[in-house]
């Protein structure tokens, strides 16, 4: 049976009216976009998990205290919170421990691997790491627009508002981000499945 799509604004409203399930629906709806964006911003799964949790805890606290402005769209609002937390964390990242295995890999890189065979995961992971590496080599402003447009699915207008720039600047940064990625890919190709 087809489930009716409930807009984010309505879910927020019914959450504030006491329906606990509404926040779970919002989390499930946006978790991949928000988590992928955070992960690419901080490049550390353990830290990304922390920021993801903290983002939603702030959202819940803000909703409970009546500080949420209903004219704000949920996803850009949530990503603004996540982005600010990510920026703060990057500034303090040097103080945080990274737990590694005997080969020096971050153990939290294995956390969400459930379905694939180990061999397949390792092949995929190598390619994904190459791609992650390319994204991390981008100038910070280009990387930010790429993450917010491609992974968070914000419009250029929403990104311009969030980063306090204008749309043309955002489009220009995205253009150069994609151009630079292509240049890097030509040197070390990433297989597209």
């Amino acid at each position: 049976m087809h489930k009716e799509f409930i807009p984010d604004g309505v879910l927020l409203k019914i959450y504030l009216e006491g329906n606990e399930n509404a926040i779970e629906t919002l989390v499930k709806r946006h978790k991949s976009r928000i988590f992928t964006s955070i992960y690419l911003m901080v490049n550390d799964r353990y830290l990304a998990e922390d920021i993801f949790q903290e983002t939603f805890i702030k959202i819940i606290n803000c909703l409970r205290s009546g500080k949420y402005r209903h004219e704000d769209k949920f996803l850009p609002w949530a990503l603004r919170i996540a982005r600010n937390l990510a920026i703060d964390s990057i500034r303090h990242k040097g103080r945080l421990p990274v737990i590694t295995d005997s080969e020096g890999n971050n153990v939290f890189d294995y956390i969400n691997i459930y379905d694939d065979s180990r061999e397949k995961v390792l092949i995929d992971k190598e390619e994904l790491q190459t791609l992650h590496g390319f994204i991390n080599k981008l100038p910070e402003e280009q990387k930010e627009v790429l993450i917010l447009r491609h992974y968070a699915d914000l419009s250029f207008k929403e990104i311009a508002d969030m980063t306090q720039t204008n749309i043309n600047t955002c489009i220009g940064r995205m253009h150069y981000a994609l151009l630079n990625l292509r240049k890097m890919m030509q040197k070390i190709p990433v297989r597209v499945k």
Binding site: K31, S32, F35, T36, Y39, L40, R45, A48, E49, F52, N112, E127, L128, L131, H132, I135, L146, H150, Y151, L181, M185, V190, V192, K193
Partner: peptide, 9 residues
């Protein structure tokens, strides 16, 4: 190519 990056909490 970018779509191949998809992370879950």
């Amino acid at each position: 190519m970018l779509d191949s990056i998809h992370e879950e909490p």
